[in-house]
Design a protein around this nucleic acid. Structure first.
Lengths: 264, 264
DNA sequence: AACGGTGTTCGGCAATACCGAACGGATATG
DNA sequence: CATATCCGTTCGGTATTGCCGAACACCGTT
């Protein structure tokens, strides 16, 4: 089976795999045989597990078929988990205000050892043209939030993170060399905000800025995301200053202290 | 133990109880002994389960102590579950627009046999002064969304729902008699929107309107929530018309068809 | 220094979660 | 129209494995 170092509970692990499988599946839902085949278990065992998950609302079953879909409890738990997180609780009103002011989608990422994990998002008005998942470690070098975080690290930390993620390419604009990244970070340290000019996805432009705890350590970054249009340098600068202002506001409300960014 | 009619998996059920326990706990996190005592299990068994949940990101452990807190995966799953739900996907831009237009917190509830289940929320600007959970069945008679849904039911359905929830009182403004509720619903059917004038919580005012599927059946309702201020009847009417317009827009984008509301 | 409180590890027993076969229904195929 | 093939479901039997309780190590307090 799977190599699990510490003591675990197998049936629970298998159940959680089922949840991820269904959540990652299509919006049509998944059938029992399909699920059993995917996880390589017997139909009867999978059925018992699915019933348990449905009982707790983690999944819901839609007739006819029976097909399994993500349940309401997941939304409830996600909402409660967000309410539990002090950072999200403080950040959300700020994200909302910045979204309204800029008309863009605003997200907040936590600094996870140099990697950004987006934990909340407030959509801008208009139809949502892109979807970015929450709660997962993202690539640091192709997102404005990630680069804003990187710019607050020491050079050796940056090198370590760059090595860990491999500086993989996502689009033709992605920065894939360490020297290129270093140059970019120098620029970020000068202007105080980071950009993502179609480096992660075609047609998407982002601006991000870091925020800090009361030790002056970078807790994460907020970013504004929109569809790429022809922005003048001045417009980018204005947006950058706006994002910085709200990031500073977040730092302040977290009783944090903004560090002097390392110039070189 | 618990009386479980169909075949289930006990260890999974116990694990999910742990998740709910921790999510419902304080923001400080819960200790192992505390959790074991609460669920009435041995520390070793609970520890193994907790480790599994931590491994999957459902919980996270914070040192020192080890204390257990809701994990990032819950946020991720909640976000994915919301993205899976066609209603949420369609509704969110509309909620965002209405929130921006009205400056209020907008929510959308699904009609669950006459009961509202709020499944998404877009906060208005400014500090959030109230928190309403998502994904749980709420009382139908003390929320504007609930009453907007009720007004689309037949009279016997309303009576059935009223019996089921007992018309319990939440504030001194709560409607607790069936005749009072019937009168209120007649009014809602006339004006097309429902209000909640501090009937669920002191100082909170809401306006809600229903939306429909392509059979003309009431799928749910959206509502605008704000702090109670001295609103003139005209202002309430204007807000009501605004909410109706966005609810109708939602109906339209769901390829739904608005029913002629039953006058009497 | 001895205590109550942690979290942790370990062995052993029995509960129980798994499997596979068999059934019934629905849909597709000849 | 009959046959075949999928589906979901039920049901025992087996042994896997998840549970317990005791013992350990650790810290803070008394």
């Amino acid at each position: 089976m799977a190599e699990v170092a510490p003591t675990q509970v197998g049936s629970v692990a298998r159940a959680l795999e089922l949840v991820e499988l269904v959540v990652g599946g299509s919006t049509e839902g998944m059938a029992l045989s399909e699920i059993a085949k995917a996880v390589g278990g017997s139909k009867s065992a999978v059925l018992a597990t699915l019933r348990t998950l449905v009982d707790f609302g983690y999944l819901r079953v839609v007739e006819p078929g029976p097909k399994y879909l993500p349940g309401m409890m997941l939304i409830r738990l996600g909402d409660l988990a967000a309410a539990h997180d002090p950072l999200i609780a403080v950040a959300r009103p700020i994200l909302t205000q910045l979204s309204e002011k800029s008309g863009l989608t605003i997200r907040v990422a936590r600094n996870d050892n140099g990697f950004p994990i987006f934990i909340d998002r407030v959509d801008g008005p208009g139809f949502v043209r892109f979807y970015t998942p929450l709660g997962v470690r993202e690539l640091p070098h192709v997102s404005s939030a990630g680069k804003a975080i990187l710019a607050e690290l020491s050079d050796e930390e940056i090198r370590s993170v760059a090595k860990e993620c491999g500086l993989v390419s996502r689009t033709k604009n992605s920065i894939t060399s360490f020297t290129g990244l270093k140059k970019e970070i120098d620029h970020i340290r000068q202007v105080g905000f980071a950009t993502d000019d179609e480096e992660d996805a075609q047609g998407i432009f982002c601006v991000g800025a870091a925020f800090f705890d009361h030790f002056g350590r970078c807790l994460g970054a907020i970013s504004a995301t929109g569809v790429k249009t022809d922005l003048t340098e001045e417009q980018v600068n204005n947006l950058g200053k706006l994002v910085i202002r709200y990031a500073d506001q977040l730092t302040k409300e977290l009783h944090g202290r903004k560090t002097v960014r390392r110039a070189i």
